[in-house]
Amino acid sequence: MNFPPAAPGASAGNPDPGDFAALLQARGLYPPPAVATSGPASASAIPTQTQATTILAFKFADGVLVAGDRRATAGNIVVYDRADKVLEIDRHSVMAIAGVPATAWEMARVLEHSFQYFRRTQLQEMSTGGKVRALSKLLRDNFGFVMQGVGVVVPLFATYDTAGPEPGSKLYFYDVMGANFEVAEYAATGSGSPAVRGVLYYENTWGRKPLSEYTLEEALNLTLRALDTASEADTATGGVDRHGRIFPMVKIIAAEGIRTITDDMLRGLFNGGRHPSAQPLSAGVPIG
């Protein structure tokens, strides 16, 4: 039991009454930003660490789809095969993470509490712009650690804006310093992202129709195939693990909220596809 006694003017220590991160820092509950004392610990540290996953997101007919594989690695070791990298922040927002889990999950936790704290104290929902910026600030505060070669996080942020001047699905990606970029169609991050970007670009540009017109089933199919493609060459991406029956985490964000796609649905779609190893062994490999 460690509540500090309530004092008159309880917010006196908090410079901004709506800012939960500032409150945590004022109370000493969140580590202060690390200060970079020299350059990067080693030139290869940053790129290696940002590359141990595959996260993708794109807009389709029903909203935004955000998906991530489930593999967590340390160097060339697979440490966990059920990591959840697609995290719900509030009723309409999802943050998908590529990077160091400790930092990323903590950021997601701060973010989740920040949005709630803002709504509760200020009696209004934080705007989409405010939410996007809040994540920017967390990344910016983390940059000292990044410069020391630890704690790199490169997230995607997807939300449904109900109150802004242009309501609808919004999708953003970030760089390690916290710059945010709104994307119109799709985004991918992590080590498997070059392959995924290739798939998404190809389908969007040369496919039968643009991604924005995909139905849910088509979007899920593409997602599974893109992650499978990424995992083909990238050992840090779990892809679709048919043997362990581990499927990617896929969430859909729309006006009515967030929907998590069940493993059963993903299994059905994936096995219905033409991937050779999706067929039972006895059935042989279809040709053509």
Binding site: A6, F20, R120, T121
Partner: peptide, 17 residues
């Protein structure tokens, strides 16, 4: 307002930590 903020701060920091 002071009581409300106190309560929210207590609950939020406890829920976070």
């Amino acid at each position: 307002e002071r009581l409300r903020m106190t309560a929210i701060e207590l609950a939020s920091t406890e829920g976070f930590t």
